[in-house]
């Protein structure tokens, strides 16, 4: 099987002829290459169990986590709706094309610079603010609230949604789906002392209002987080349409 790997965006692609099974994950494949063929390959990894968010990349134009995806799934994607982000490079016949996720600078090969992504995340002050009068024990929180919060706390900040969001590339200063979902998570949290003010952090043309609801974010999220829903609900709230 031919595996074509980007070695510097827009600069060069290398083809590797590998003898492997399609049951391997993309991450297994990358290890196979660095251990046996080319020591200079650069890629990120950590948990290999789809929880740490290290190994986002494009495989045959589809943004995904390398550890979670077998080659078979890429070669025979089946009917599931997919987000495809064409790069200009051709997929080798019957093979695999691996590229870094778009919309972030490349450090080397498949490794991108996450700083712009985390910078936007940090701008929205993602932390529960300190409360003046804390209860002695835990806050009491209903199961329904927990269930709603979990939809957003499940985010692993892998930047797949960022890479798949057309608005990220178009609107200067747009925080991106993950950061906005995180902001909404703190708005939802009944423990947060400054809930109302929180929403205003992104109440700008380049914030909540910049989203065009492509919903790529939700489609590519490996944890099922729906930033598009968070953004829609935030807008409703700001327009006063969520009042009972």
């Amino acid at each position: 099987m031919i595996v074509r790997i980007s070695r510097g965006r827009g600069e060069r692609y290398d083809d590797f002829d590998v003898n492997i099974t399609a049951e391997m994950t993309v991450l297994d494949l990358l290890f196979h290459i660095i251990e046996n063929i080319d020591q200079t390959l650069a890629f990120r990894y950590s948990c290999r169990g789809a929880v740490c968010g290290s190994c986002a990349l494009l495989a045959n134009h589809v943004p995904l986590l390398a550890c979670r995806t077998t080659l078979a799934k890429i070669l025979n994607p089946g009917g599931s709706p997919r987000v495809s982000l064409p790069s200009g490079a051709e997929i080798p016949a019957g093979g695999i094309l691996l590229e870094p996720i778009p919309r972030l600078p490349v450090i080397r090969d498949l490794v991108v610079d996450w700083e712009p992504f985390f910078e936007q995340y940090l701008k929205l002050e993602p932390a529960l603010k300190e409360e003046k009068n804390l209860p002695d024990k835990e806050h009491l929180i209903g199961k329904d609230e927990v269930r709603e919060l979990e939809r957003y706390t499940n985010c692993i900040l892998c930047a797949l949604c960022w890479s798949a969001c057309p608005v990220v590339g178009e609107v200067e200063g747009y925080p991106g789906p993950a950061a906005l979902a995180k902001l909404y998570r703190f708005f939802l949290d009944s423990r947060e002392p400054g809930r109302a003010e929180r929403m205003l952090l992104a109440d700008t043309d380049s914030g909540w209002w910049a989203c065009d609801f492509y919903t790529n974010c939700r489609k590519v999220c490996p944890r099922g987080v729906p930033p598009n829903i968070a953004i829609g609900k935030a807008r409703k709230h700001l327009k006063g349409e969520d009042q009972e």
């Binding site: 529960l128 409360e131 835990e138 806050h139 929180i141 209903g142 199961k143 927990v146 703190f186």
Partner: peptide, 8 residues
């Protein structure tokens, strides 16, 4: 208190 969403 710091924000962890424990199951309830």
């Amino acid at each position: 208190h710091w924000g962890t969403v424990f199951s309830r």
